[in-house]
Amino acid sequence: MDQALGAADTPTVYFNVQRYDPEVDAKPRYDRFAVPYEPGMTVLQGLLWILDHVDGSLALRYSCREAACGSCAMLVNGWYRLACKTQVKDLRSKEITVQPLPHYPVIKDLVVDMSGFFAKYRAVQPYLVGGDGQRAVEPASGPGAPAPEEVAPGREFRQSPADRAAFEDATICILCGACTSSCPSFWTNPDYLGPAALLKGYRFAADTRDCLAERVPLLSGEDGIYRCHTIFNCTAACPKEIPITEALQSLKRMASRRLLGGGGGGGRQAAR
């Protein structure tokens, strides 16, 4: 499993960790830690080894250590990664530089303030508005498909596997914040909702069960999808490999169709 860094010939790797406590330090610095390498070691394990054995003041977020909870997105050797999903051997370097996610205020070391990120999440009404079986979105099977069956009380809304698959990619987002942090449009306009919040909006806009008439307008305002200039940084940064930019273009198409009065993208709303 470990050809690049055999345990025998390279037992030590070096973590260069950005340290900064804005309440104490005038500016960030880098501390260099020698860490004994073990086969299978992830960047997160290396950081926790430092915390346990060298420097108890190191601040970082961790939880699931299996790329599901979104706690540990950070810059590793200059790129967006989940520390828990990044094998040290895959970095193909003994020098590992670790920095907090950029463009969020640093709280301490690798811990950043994500309150602004989650404020944007909340701004897109990130929840399914359903309940009456009426679709805001045409199913993937196309306009003219039969309306959802009358749902018996106490039973699920029906959704075809194709309709479910249409928003699968968007459901696997873990809200780690890497995409928004990587987005040049967000860098220049901090009010831009950003790829993570818009992807969440798309997840519901593309769900045949969602009935929020204002869903697409909510996402296509001044700070919404038209601020996406298809730079694709978000897609490249996403540790879950979600095609975020594509999803945002789908949202643009929904918004255009809605303005032109065509089907889909809330078209059914006009008839209600």
Partner: peptide, 23 residues
């Protein structure tokens, strides 16, 4: 169990589906 799972579905939980559209 049945009520809670149906409730979660109505709240938007993206369950996988059978060909007939059921969970």
């Amino acid at each position: 169990a049945i009520d809670r799972v149906i409730e979660a579905e109505h709240w938007g939980c993206p369950f996988s589906r059978f060909p007939d559209g059921r969970i």
